[in-house]
C-alpha cells in the first residue's frame, strides 16, 4: 500500500479531485433542475405522470451506453460525463421531491391557504420544510449512485478514479483496481454521511427535545 501511494500518490489526489468535481457538478445540476421541477409537477398532476415515466426510462439506459451516446453530441471529456450523470441523478431527486410534496398533510395546505398564504408562501413556508426529509433522501441516494457511476466516466476521457480501475483491468494490476475502488467507496460513504448531517440541519424541528 505504501508502495502504491509512493507510486501513485499525487495522481490519486488529482483523480479523486476529478471524481469529486464530476459527481458534484452532476448532482448540483440535478438538484437545480429536479427539485424545482418536482415542485412544479405537484401543481400539474397529469404532466407529472409523463415526466416521471420519461425520467424513469432514462434511468433504465445502461450507464455505459448512455456515456457512449453522449460522445456524438458533446464529444469526449468532462462535459458529456457530467451531462450523462446529471440525467441519472434526476429521477431519484425528482421522484422524492414530488412524493414528498404530495405527502404533506392536506390539512396543513388547507390551513395555509385558508389563513391567507399565497401559493409561493405555502410552498416555501410549509410544503418544502415539511417534505425536506424525503427530498434529502432522494438527494443522498442520487449522490451515492452518481459517485460510483462516475468511475465509468473515465471511459469517455473524463478522468477520475475510474482511470485507475480501467488501467488496472488492462494491465492485470489488482493493486490499481483496489487503489481506485477504495477511494470511490470512501467518497460515497463520506458524501452520504455529510449529507446526513446536512439533512438534520435543514429538517425543521417539531420538538424542543431534538435540540
Amino acid at each position: 500500500m505504501i508502495t502504491f501511494l509512493n507510486q501513485h500518490g499525487s495522481e490519486l489526489i488529482i483523480k479523486t479531485w476529478e471524481q469529486i468535481y464530476i459527481s458534484a457538478f452532476a448532482i448540483i445540476l440535478g438538484i437545480i433542475v429536479a427539485v424545482p421541477l418536482g415542485i412544479l409537477l405537484t401543481r400539474y398532476d397529469k404532466t407529472a405522470k409523463y415526466v416521471m415515466s420519461i425520467t424513469g426510462m432514462l434511468q433504465t439506459i445502461p450507464s455505459l451506453a448512455l456515456l457512449a451516446l453522449m460522445i456524438p453530441i458533446f464529444g469526449i471529456g468532462k462535459v458529456p460525463a457530467i451531462v450523462a450523470l446529471f440525467i441519472y441523478s434526476l429521477l431519484p431527486i425528482l421522484r422524492n421531491t414530488y412524493i414528498g410534496m404530495k405527502k404533506v398533510n392536506k390539512n396543513l395546505l388547507d390551513a395555509a391557504r385558508g389563513l391567507g398564504m399565497t401559493t409561493m408562501q405555502s410552498i416555501f413556508k410549509v410544503e418544502i420544510p415539511m417534505s425536506m426529509p424525503i427530498i434529502m433522501s432522494g438527494i443522498r441516494l442520487s449522490t451515492v449512485y452518481v459517485i460510483s457511476w462516475s468511475t465509468l466516466a473515465s471511459y469517455i476521457g473524463a478522468g477520475g478514479l475510474g482511470d485507475f480501475i480501467f488501467n488496472g483491468l488492462n494491465l492485470y494490476n489488482p493493486s490499481l483496481i483496489i487503489g481506485g475502488t477504495i477511494p470511490v467507496t470512501i467518497l460515497a460513504i463520506l458524501a452520504d454521511y455529510l449529507l446526513g448531517i446536512f439533512e438534520k440541519k435543514v429538517t425543521p424541528k417539531t420538538k424542543r427535545s431534538e435540540v
Binding site: 390539512n107 396543513l108 388547507d110 390551513a111 395555509a112 385558508g114 389563513l115 413556508k125 410549509v126 420544510p129 415539511m130 425543521p204 424541528k205 417539531t206
Partner: peptide, 13 residues
C-alpha cells in the same frame, strides 16, 4: 379567521 378540524397547526413552527 379560519379553524379546521385537525387544528391545522404547522408542526415545524
Amino acid at each position: 379567521g379560519y379553524v379546521i378540524q385537525n387544528n391545522g397547526l404547522m408542526p415545524h413552527m
